[in-house]
Computed example of a mutant assay.
Amino acid sequence: MTYNGDVTPGGAPAVRELDRLTVTKVSVGPMDNNAYLLRCHDTGEQLLIDAANEAPRLLELVADGGLATVVTTHRHMDHWVALEEVVAKTGARALVHADDADGLPIPAEPLRDGDTVRVGDCELEVIHLVGHTPGSIALLYRDPSGVPHLFTGDSLFPGGVGNTEQDPQRFGSLIDDVEHKLFDRLPDETWFYPGHGKDSTLGAERPALPQWRARGW
């Protein structure tokens, strides 16, 4: 079945098979948060992006493959409700950007811009995007056999950047980071996976960048 990234709370996961990595997307309630389980084909190692909620469901997704790492994209509570339980039951490492570490319910290892997070033989680049929160991050996987894959948390969605609560300084920081660190660096075919809702590509969103900047959100 062709992956399109459309998931609903309580619905079936969407599974995307890449050459070296499997990406499983699931939506958890009550706020329709996306969580992403990445599994390295060669080693079987697994990494979870955002243990948002519904710990039993996430643990069922992990199954008996074990979980090495949980990366939290930012400190907002709807992205870590299940973190403590998932880490306690799997022994996974918890990682978050240093500037958002104080917002999590458990201690987490600090990440910084440019760091590399491994899942088996695959590498994810940490990209710091300041504005939605001080320590928001995206994770970039450069598929050697295909297009780049970008997990953007709440910093980039189809139709605009993340919520900056009508703060001009925060919006300016986020739109600058998203434009320069993502759109300026990565090709149009880059597929991105946000913290809520549907996926998109940078190419589909690129023409609207001037409109986003002009409207201020």
Rank of each mutant, 00 (worst) to 15 (best):
K89S: 14
H149F: 10
L38H: 01
L58C: 06
D42E: 15
A35W: 11
V28T: 09
D199G: 10
I127M: 04
V81H: 08
A12K: 11
G5Q: 02
P134G: 08
G5D: 06
K198G: 15
F192P: 09
R215F: 13
D154F: 04
E45F: 05
G29W: 12
G44I: 04
P144R: 00
N163Q: 12
P187V: 02
G160T: 05
G160V: 08
Y141I: 10
G10F: 11
A35C: 15
D113A: 01
G10L: 07
P210E: 07
G66Y: 07
V28P: 12
L150V: 03
R16K: 14
Y36C: 14
D50E: 04
R39G: 10
T2S: 14
H41A: 15
L37Y: 07
E85D: 13
A51Q: 02
D42K: 06
V147D: 13
S155C: 15
I49N: 01
G65R: 05
A138C: 11
Y193I: 13
D176L: 09
D50G: 03
A51T: 09
A208Q: 13
G29L: 08
Y36F: 15
I106G: 02
L95N: 01
C122F: 06
D19P: 05
W191Q: 15
N4K: 02
L209D: 08
L129W: 06
G216Q: 03
R39Q: 14
L202D: 06
H128G: 11
N4Y: 10
P194C: 02
T190Y: 07
F157Y: 13
G103M: 03
L37E: 08
L83A: 02
L111N: 04
A52K: 04
E125P: 09
E17G: 10
G114K: 00
G10R: 01
E45W: 03
V62Q: 00
H149I: 08
L139P: 10
A12G: 09
T69N: 02
V96C: 06
T201A: 08
I137S: 00
A82H: 02
P144A: 01
L124W: 05
L18Q: 00
L38I: 10
P207F: 01
G120E: 02
G5F: 11
I175H: 03
A98I: 04
M77H: 15
N33A: 15
T152M: 08
A35Q: 11
L37F: 10
A88K: 01
R57Y: 11
N34M: 12
A35V: 14
H196N: 03
H128M: 08
V161M: 05
E109P: 13
Q211C: 09
A12R: 09
L156K: 00
E109V: 07
G172M: 02
T73Y: 06
W212P: 01
